[in-house]
Design a protein around this nucleic acid. Sequence first.
RNA 1: GCCCGGGUGGUGUAGUCCGGCCCAACAUGUGGGCCUGUCGAGCCCACGCCCCGGGUUCAAAUCCCGGCCCGGGCGCCA
Length: 430
Amino acid sequence: MRMYTSEITPEMDGKVVKLFGWVHEVRDHGGLIFLVLRDREGFAQITLPKKVVSKEVFNTARSLKRESVVAVEGKVKAEPKAPNGFEIIPDIITLLNEAEAPLPLEVTEKVPAELDTRLDYRFMDLRRPKVQAIFRIRHQVMQSVREFLSKEGFIEVNTPKIVSTATEGGTELFPISYFEKEAFLNQSPQLYKQVLMGAGFEKVFEIGPIFRAEEHNTTRHLNEAISIDIEMSFTDHEGVMGVLERLIAKICEDINQKCSKYLDLLGIKLEIPELPLPRITYEEALKMAKSKGEEIPWGEDLSLQALKAIGEEINGYYFIVDWPTDAKPFYVMPHENRPEISKSFDLMHSWLELASGAQRIHRYDVLVNRIKAKGLQPESFGFYLDAFRYGMPPHAGWGLGAERLLMSLLDLKNIREAVLFPRDRQRLVP
RNA sequence: GCCCGGGUGGUGUAGUCCGGCCCAACAUGUGGGCCUGUCGAGCCCACGCCCCGGGUUCAAAUCCCGGCCCGGGCGCCA
């Protein structure tokens, strides 16, 4: 029966096991060969003393090329000199598929490769345990999101990614052809999740792709990203901020608990944030930035420099709340006593924006006026606006960028590292 | 889109400032050889590279122009 390398222990001395995997390295000492087999769980040393193993097996091992796929059947031997305290003395080595040489990059990490080269040969790059660790953790993040939100009473939904109009203006969309009509790839599930509040679901979440046709060229933007979105009825911005901060804490706990092996591999120490997370207002943020020499006029978005200045002051996760109404999309709810600021928030990690959300306007006439005030056409929001005419509850929600969350958790320098096959301004393949 | 810095064996770098000592160096790799305890194995031999297109010059990896691509920063954006 097949076993993973991680399942073998020195106590299994004498037991016959079968391993499948890749030839990570072959160290040929003449009369003794060490073959390092790698599978998705780790490594195992296959040891071939010339006088012990068959001539055939010995010669096979000697001729193996790195990264070839093999099956190894042999006896476990407890051996203090071997990594992890055991080695396998093989009876059979089957070459399942030979790899070509030379390799497009080093899986062994002896020689570094640039991110661009790594992405060109991503399948090979992903074989590196450290790279795989990122995606094991990403998997756990998604698991935790689903588990946590489900427990909180949210149901998972899927909304269309091919849409007829822009969601909220602002960003550029990718046009596509939809039979005889023009259509776009959706930039956000915003309008649909709000409509689902009108449908009476009360609590929904979606994990899905969003597409932005912005020609940005940075280490923190993608043209295709995964957004974790929630929308919740009969609550306000404070209510959904609570959900968000509890989710972040839960993710950190789960990762610490279930992915310690991968965190160690990446050299990451994850601190579980204390709740509630700090909240600063937009106006306080302006002051903090100004005290560090970054002056931003009221009403404008915070520049990266300003955010970096603030990030130096506040460690870890925090909220910036009460953004100028005009700096946010048309659907955000203004404060009753000060309509120039809104019931909106961004979740930050140091200088990086991870999520943004708000209480939404739920009154039809107010919403139509806001759309007009933003210079948009109410007619192009027909299906959306209809939902507000026949009993739309008060509601709030947020969208959280999955890749940015990964960046903040794992201290990744480039957002592309958090995606298997990233899409950016230049990259459409692989 | 803008500004800066880059593009040299499969991979990662040195060399470019100040053209010739560069038929290009180092590491890793690949092929072969030696070697029974490696774990970045070691030692010996060999193989393999100047992004594309123009220009200047007796002479270009090196200088100039254009293009494409990459990195960092900015902008846009989340």
